[in-house]
């Protein structure tokens, strides 16, 4: 029984211009489908990574899971105790007018958990005296530690991490990642780890999902995904990663751009950028079978 189960979850956003402009300009409503039929199971104690380009719906999935958005279609089932979230921007995720102590204490007070602020600050590597300060007195990495302390204050068993390191210096990223895996081991946490940084995801995730234009196109154990990618989009992403090992592998830049999500391409939404696309790909949406959604893979063409 998975801890979290997403069943064909979709989320639409109404991005129409205001009513009056719409009527005057004879424009129709414009609906943006940010997440399209996403199914995902996450088991207790594992870390699932979610990667994809900007605007592919990763963050929307995160917000759907913690309940900030309601799904337009589909079901989200959560069997755990409580979900908390760590946000991307450490400068916007802490209320600048609140002292750190009050920020970390808010979940404790409101949810009635028996946590202690001093203990939580110590757990994330800060001093208990830091509680008296305001967020602007801390660096990005320290703020992210405060964010983690706040999330832990709610005693979650599941943490949704929306690009928790992408706003940080590389040296600080490693510290935060170490802290997170440390906490996972000690508290038995489950993570959904969202990132556009493949190197980071390969380091922390047990399984990785690749998203493209609101759909999950490939889902596989991390080792397998990085050594034997199947979906052409995953291959394209991996080929674009700078090769620090100097193995002599030729590096191919990512081709094309993400299409306008307001008017997604027909069939497989990746077909305009895909080197293997044929007539069927343009016509038919590929089903997600056996960890991948691609006609070419399922037909054995690649």
């Amino acid at each position: 029984m998975p801890l979290l189960k997403l069943e064909r979850v979709s989320r639409d956003f109404d991005v129409s211009p205001p009513w009056l402009n719409r009527v005057l300009d004879h424009e129709p409503r414009r609906i943006l489908r940010a997440v399209d039929q996403v199914s995902l199971d996450i088991d207790k104690g594992e870390t699932v990574g979610l990667v994809g380009e900007s605007g592919c719906g990763k963050s929307t999935v995160a917000r759907l899971i913690v309940g900030l958005y309601a799904p337009t279609e589909g079901r989200i089932e959560y069997r755990g105790r409580r979900l908390q979230m760590i946000f991307q921007d450490p400068y916007a995720s802490l209320n600048p007018r609140w002292r750190v102590h009050d920020i970390v204490a808010e979940p404790i007070r409101f949810l009635g958990t028996p946590q202690k602020v001093e203990e939580l600050l110590r757990q994330v590597g800060l001093s208990p005296d830091d509680g008296e300060k305001y967020p602007h007195e801390f660096s990005g990495g320290q703020r992210q530690r405060i964010s983690i302390a706040r999330a832990l204050a709610g005693e979650p068993d599941f943490l949704v991490c929306d690009e928790p390191t992408s706003a940080l210096d590389v040296s600080v990223q490693a510290q935060i990642l170490n802290l997170m895996s440390d906490l996972q081991r000690r508290l038995g946490l489950t993570y959904l780890f969202i990132s556009h940084n493949l190197a980071v995801v390969s380091q922390v995730a047990d399984r990785v999902g690749v998203m493209y234009l609101g759909r999950i196109v490939e889902l596989a154990p991390a080792a397998q995904l990085f050594s034997r990618p199947r979906h052409p989009y995953t291959r394209m992403l991996l080929d674009a990663v700078p090769d620090l090992g100097m193995s002599g592998r030729p590096r191919t830049p990512v081709r094309g751009e993400v299409p306008n999500p307001l008017a997604p391409p027909s069939g497989c939404t990746f077909h305009p950028r895909c080197p293997h696309a044929n007539e069927r790909c343009r016509r038919e949406v590929p089903a997600f079978i056996d960890g991948v959604a691609c006609h070419a893979v399922l037909e054995g063409r690649i």
Partner: peptide, 26 residues
């Protein structure tokens, strides 16, 4: 739209409480 307001919503605080204790001081 800032993430500290979303963080308060994830904790489960009501809109009125968020308006008064989070948004108002800012």
């Amino acid at each position: 739209e800032k993430e500290y307001v979303q963080a308060a919503r994830v904790i489960g605080r009501r809109p009125l409480a968020i308006m008064l204790s989070h948004v108002l001081p800012n």
